[in-house]
C-alpha cells in the first residue's frame, strides 16, 4: 500500500506499456496515452516542474529592491542559510514537527489498530469519523481551538465555574504541537489502518501458538510488518507539520516561528525572493531525504 501511494504514479504507466501488443497498436496507444496522460502531465509540468525550476533558479540570484529578482549570480543566499538565526529556526521546526509526529504515531497506532479489529460496519463509521474534520475548513478548525483555549475561552470559563484557573493554554510551543497533531492525526491513522488491516491474522495466531505473548507478537510480528505504514504515516504528518506556518501564527501567537513562516515572510514581507527560494530549497532537501528513506523502507518490506 505504501508503494502505491508514493510511487504509484510512475508504476501505473509502466505496467500499461508492457501490456501494449504489436507495433501499430503501440503507435495508436501512444496517441491514446498522450490524450489520457496529457491533462495530468500538463498539470505536473505547468504547476509543479516549472515553478520548482523557477524557485531553484532564484536561489543563485540577488534580491531586487522591491521584490523580484536581480539576475546577478551570487552564493550569498546559501551562506545566509548557515546564519545561526535561520539554522535555529530550521532546527526548531524539525524539533516541533518531530515531536508532533511521534505523538501522532503514539496516538494514531492504537487508534488504527482498534479500528482494524472492529466489525465491518463499525469500521466504516470509525473511518468516516477520522476523516470528518477534513470536511471543515482548516482555518475554522484552528480558530475553534482559540475559542476553546483562550483566556476567556470555553475551557477556562468551565474551569472557572469549578473554581479553577484561569490558565494560559495558548500561544506557546505546546499549543503549536497540539495544533499540528490535531490537524494531521488522520493522515497518520489512515495509512496505519491500511497496513494493519492488510495484515494476515493467521500470522498473529501462529505467533501465539508458538508461545509468544501478545507484547512479543506485537514487537516481532505486527510492528515489523506494519513498519511501511508507520513510515508513511510519519511522513504524512511530518511533511505538512515541518512547513506549516498557519498554526505557529494562530496557535503560537506569532511568538515562535517555523521555517514555513520564514519562507512566507521572505516572500511577502521582506520581498526577498531569492533567499525565500533558498529556504524553500532547504525544506525540500529535508523532505527528499525523508522520501528516500520511506522508499527504502518500503522496498525492504
Amino acid at each position: 500500500m505504501t508503494r502505491s501511494t508514493v510511487s504509484g504514479a510512475t508504476a501505473a504507466p509502466r505496467s500499461r506499456r508492457s501490456r501494449a501488443p504489436g507495433r501499430t497498436a503501440a503507435g495508436r496507444s501512444a496517441v491514446g496515452r498522450l490524450v489520457f496522460l496529457g491533462p495530468g502531465l500538463a498539470y505536473l509540468i505547468v504547476l509543479l516542474l516549472v515553478p520548482l525550476a523557477l524557485v531553484l533558479s532564484y536561489t543563485i540570484f540577488r534580491r531586487g529592491r522591491f521584490g523580484g529578482v536581480v539576475y546577478e549570480a551570487t552564493g550569498e543566499n546559501f551562506t545566509r542559510l548557515l546564519d545561526p538565526l535561520y539554522l535555529d529556526v530550521i532546527v526548531g521546526s524539525l524539533k516541533l514537527a518531530s515531536i508532533a509526529t511521534v505523538i501522532a504515531l503514539l496516538v494514531g497506532y492504537p487508534t488504527a489498530y482498534l479500528i482494524a479489529q472492529l466489525p465491518r460496519k463499525w469500521k466504516t463509521i470509525a473511518l468516516v469519523a477520522i476523516v470528518l474534520p477534513f470536511w471543515t475548513n482548516f482555518l475554522v478548525r484552528i480558530y475553534a481551538w482559540i475559542v476553546l483555549l483562550s483566556g476567556p475561552g470555553l475551557v477556562n470559563s468551565t474551569l472557572g465555574d469549578l473554581g479553577l484557573g484561569p490558565f494560559e493554554f495558548l500561544y506557546n510551543q505546546g499549543t503549536i504541537v497540539t495544533g499540528l497533531v490535531y490537524s494531521y492525526l488522520p493522515l497518520m491513522v489512515l495509512p496505519l489502518y491500511a497496513a494493519i488491516e492488510k495484515l494476515d491474522p493467521q500470522l498473529r495466531e501462529a505467533s501465539a501458538n508458538l508461545g509468544a505473548r501478545p507484547a512479543r507478537t506485537f514487537v516481532s510480528v505486527t510492528l515489523p510488518l506494519t513498519l511501511p505504514g508507520v513510515v508513511t504515516g510519519c511522513l504524512f504528518v511530518f511533511v505538512p507539520s515541518f512547513g506549516n506556518f498557519i498554526i505557529p501564527e494562530l496557535l503560537g501567537g506569532g511568538r515562535s516561528i517555523m521555517v514555513g513562516n520564514l519562507i512566507r515572510d521572505q516572500f511577502l514581507k521582506a520581498r526577498d525572493w531569492p533567499f525565500g527560494s533558498t529556504l524553500a530549497l532547504a525544506l525540500l532537501a529535508v523532505l527528499v531525504v525523508l522520501l528516500l528513506l520511506q522508499a527504502w523502507s518500503a522496498r525492504r518490506a
Partner: peptide, 19 residues
C-alpha cells in the same frame, strides 16, 4: 529605507525566533 530595510526584516525575524 531602501537597502537598509533588510535590517528591520532581520530584527523582526530575530525577535520572533527567540524563545
Amino acid at each position: 529605507l531602501g537597502e537598509d530595510s533588510v535590517k528591520f526584516t532581520r530584527l523582526a525575524t530575530e525577535v520572533a525566533a527567540q524563545q
